[in-house]
Design a protein around this nucleic acid. Structure first.
Lengths: 262, 262
DNA sequence: AACTCAAGTTCCAAATTACGGAACACTGTT
DNA sequence: AACAGTGTTCCGTAATTTGGAACTTGAGTT
């Protein structure tokens, strides 16, 4: 028998969704009814409910049930949470070592979103709250994420315009493309007053299990603390931390949930 | 007010899960209760139920609620279904043009899984059912997927051993690595009797929105129908089809669900 | 150490909600 | 035209969820 909770409807929901797999991605009402041993009428009402929330959808062609788009959204979110969870301790160490603010960001639909941050130990620091969204062309983290997007996406971003946010924001398409090429070449991005007056940043990519960039790890702070040679030191530290996160991500992040859940 | 279905528990579930976002990834019971206007006692029982199914999890540190690993699994599945849906019509055209079986496969946890297939029009044909799993080192589709995995994953596959499935299965690590390098170089894979006697295959990669390989599109059939020069013709056709799928995938596949759902 | 307050947890009677058998509708087939 | 298989609607019944109230826990304060 299946694990059961105190809310039967949820047990049923899980049972139903668990029927959908790569091997058997679509079901008719009768098939599902037989498989689960649930009367067709009950199941039917249930499936309709799932459909109104786009958890399931009925193929217009063959009228069979398939997963809808909502699990996709949830999955995306859960993936971000996993990343956050894994990155957190590494970020804390990096923040302690550098004394500056450490940021974890992802690219999402023409914006760069801050997933996690660990504050600088100093009173004067760069403040970027979790959840903040920024344009993808300004700042080290943004640029590193943009650099590894497919060409068409870069094109689309440029076509939407490159607003000036601060003194050094790159607003010229040609200049930006050159910068991105250099970033891909070097594997890191730096910025000085591209987003905020008196602020600098460095960032390196976090790689996913298939060799794609899934996020950026950045260090940021006020210019007056940035002494000669410190940038390179931070780049190295940042890359090491990012690689560590990448490593954990696909060392045991795949398969049956890893150390996650219960 | 929110869209409601005939099963209230599901409405509530969706309401709850929708609270979790990049901006606000964790909630305490009280916060959620206030946000939703649901009594703490009811909500509490509900959250516990979600926890037993790993839909939510409580952070051991701060005891706040976060998304669990199950949405991750569902999301992965839903993503595969989207891919399937998009690829299907293109695959049908390809099958009609070539008269051979067309396959859509993804790499998953040391195996290659068949997500979708369109049968050859001929009576004598390669049969590979949806859901079939195969080792990742033999056959055109498998090799193309393996070729674009990160180096460590390739290493891991090789370390697990390269069993011989058929006459021409590549079982030597060095030879396989050379083959994979050539595949990356050319952008397509071919095979002759690597998995089944009398069978051939060609395959090309399907690219995702971030420039990573998300799946493989393959054509396969019996050797006796493979006349001189046909391989190259199929490679070209296969690549065109794969690129078309890639294109649709990130032309309108991202953002707010696209044409998917309702 | 005693107190305060907020957050989290348990309990139980009330009633709303989901259940499922049966009857009905729809579609394509022999 | 009868049939068979699938999907849909109805409605009385039964079970599940509900939420107020009381209780526990734990952190912070005097």
């Amino acid at each position: 028998m299946r694990e059961s909770s105190s809310v039967k409807t949820i047990d049923r929901l899980v049972e139903i969704l668990d029927c959908f797999s790569s091997q058997h991605p679509d079901w008719s009402l009768t098939e599902l009814s037989a498989r689960l041993g649930v009367p067709k009428s009950s199941l039917h009402r249930f499936l309709l409910a799932l459909e109104t929330h786009s958890i399931l959808r009925r193929d217009p062609q063959d009228r069979r049930w398939r997963l809808g788009y909502r699990p996709l959204v949830w999955g995306q979110l859960a993936a971000h949470h996993t990343l956050r969870l894994i990155a957190r301790p590494v970020m804390e160490r990096l923040a302690a070592e550098t004394g500056e603010t450490v940021l974890l960001t992802v690219y999402e639909n023409f914006e760069v979103v801050c997933l996690e941050k660990v504050d600088s130990t100093h009173e004067v620091r760069l403040a970027m709250e979790v959840g903040t969204r920024r344009p993808p062309h300004a700042g080290a983290s943004s640029k590193i994420l943009m650099a590894y997007l497919p060409e068409t996406e870069i094109q689309a971003i440029i076509e939407r315009g490159l607003p000036r946010l601060c003194t050094n924001t790159i607003t010229d398409p040609t200049e930006l493309r050159a910068e991105l090429a250099q970033i891909r070449d070097r594997g890191y991005a730096v910025s000085r007053e591209e987003t905020d007056v008196g602020a600098w940043g460095v960032a390196t990519p976090i790689w996913g299990p298939r060799g794609e960039v899934v996020a950026a790890l950045g260090i940021a702070g006020p210019l007056f603390r940035l002494t000669r040679g410190l940038t390179q030191e931070y780049v190295v530290k940042c890359r090491q931390a990012a690689e560590q996160i990448s490593h954990i991500l696909w060392k045991n992040g795949r398969g049956k949930g890893g150390d996650f859940g219960k």
